[in-house]
Structure formats: C-alpha cells, structure tokens
Computed example of a mutant assay.
Amino acid sequence: MFLGTYEPRLDAKGRLILPAKFRDQLADGLVMTRGQERCLYVFPAAEFEQMYNELRRAPLSSKASRDYIRVMLSGASNDTPDKQGRIVIPQNLRAYAGLDRELAVIGAGARVEIWNATAWSDYLSAQEEIFSETGDEVVPGLF
C-alpha cells in the first residue's frame, strides 16, 4: 500500500527519483498514465493489469466507457525504475499534469499520484475543509 506525501524534484531530463518507501513495490515495473484532476497515476504493473481486466468488462456499447478507456490507455507508459529508483516521465504526461521542477508525490493506496506541487497544494487546501466535514455518507459505516 502506498502512503504519505513526498516532495521530490523533476530533473532536466524529465526523471523523478521515486520515494524510497515506494521503490520496492514498483521495482518489478510500473505503468504511468493520466489521472483525474490533472495528476498522473502510477500503478505497479500487476495492479495495472488487474485494473485493465476490469476495464475490459465495460460494454463496448457504452460511449462513456470507450472514452474513459481511450484516454487512460492512450496516455499509458510502462517503465522500470533504474538502480537509483529513477523513472522517466514522458513529455506528453508532464504536459498533461503541468509538471515542472517542483512535484508532490502522494501515496493513494493501490497507486501513486504525481502532482504539480502548486496544484496539489491548492487541491489539498480545498479538500481538507470538505474532508473535515464529511460524514458517513461517503463511506457508510467507516466511523
């Protein structure tokens, strides 16, 4: 499980050094793709395969399903971290997420999310108030 928030920097070649706590789970390969809210999703390769198998079950007759699958898969890129734990973020994904040098890399359970640091800060500021007021209507029985 991926947890926590880290603030690494993107180097001039578009490489990111993965947080040390995430490296073992991504060492066998990963898939990076467009995420929602203009971030990037990074899945362990096996987790992405499971997610893809779920996506395949969506009916071809559903335009919303086709659109979602096209956007998610057309932006996907696979990679394996090097010995220093670095991965290359392709230019098209950097542009999609508005990534520059300052990043926020967060653990989101089964995936990692990569955000522009300012976009993450803005998002988190807006969501923290909502989070503090959220009742059991989001996850019934959680608390």
Results as ranks from 00 to 15, higher is better:
1 M>K: 07
3 L>G: 01
5 T>R: 13
7 E>F: 15
8 P>Y: 08
9 R>C: 12
11 D>P: 05
12 A>F: 05
13 K>N: 14
14 G>M: 12
16 L>E: 02
16 L>P: 04
17 I>M: 02
18 L>K: 01
20 A>C: 04
21 K>T: 10
23 R>P: 00
23 R>H: 00
25 Q>H: 13
26 L>D: 01
26 L>E: 01
30 L>H: 02
31 V>C: 01
32 M>Q: 08
33 T>L: 04
34 R>G: 14
34 R>A: 15
36 Q>D: 06
38 R>C: 10
40 L>V: 06
45 A>C: 08
46 A>F: 04
47 E>V: 01
47 E>A: 08
48 F>I: 01
49 E>N: 10
49 E>Y: 09
51 M>I: 10
53 N>A: 12
55 L>Q: 03
56 R>I: 13
56 R>N: 12
57 R>T: 09
58 A>L: 13
58 A>C: 08
58 A>S: 12
62 S>K: 07
62 S>G: 05
63 K>R: 06
63 K>V: 14
64 A>Y: 11
67 D>F: 06
67 D>T: 07
68 Y>M: 15
69 I>F: 06
71 V>R: 08
71 V>H: 09
73 L>E: 06
74 S>L: 13
77 S>T: 13
78 N>H: 03
82 D>G: 00
82 D>N: 00
83 K>T: 07
84 Q>N: 00
86 R>I: 00
87 I>R: 02
87 I>L: 00
87 I>E: 01
88 V>P: 04
89 I>L: 11
96 Y>H: 02
96 Y>Q: 01
96 Y>C: 05
97 A>I: 05
97 A>V: 04
99 L>S: 06
104 A>W: 08
105 V>N: 03
105 V>F: 04
106 I>P: 03
110 A>L: 09
111 R>K: 07
113 E>H: 11
114 I>S: 03
114 I>N: 03
115 W>E: 12
115 W>D: 10
116 N>K: 08
117 A>W: 04
117 A>K: 07
117 A>Q: 07
118 T>F: 08
118 T>I: 15
120 W>V: 13
121 S>I: 09
121 S>E: 15
122 D>Y: 02
123 Y>K: 10
124 L>G: 09
125 S>N: 15
125 S>Y: 15
126 A>I: 14
130 I>F: 14
130 I>R: 14
131 F>T: 09
131 F>H: 10
132 S>M: 11
133 E>Y: 12
134 T>L: 14
135 G>V: 03
135 G>I: 00
135 G>C: 04
136 D>C: 06
138 V>I: 15
140 P>I: 07
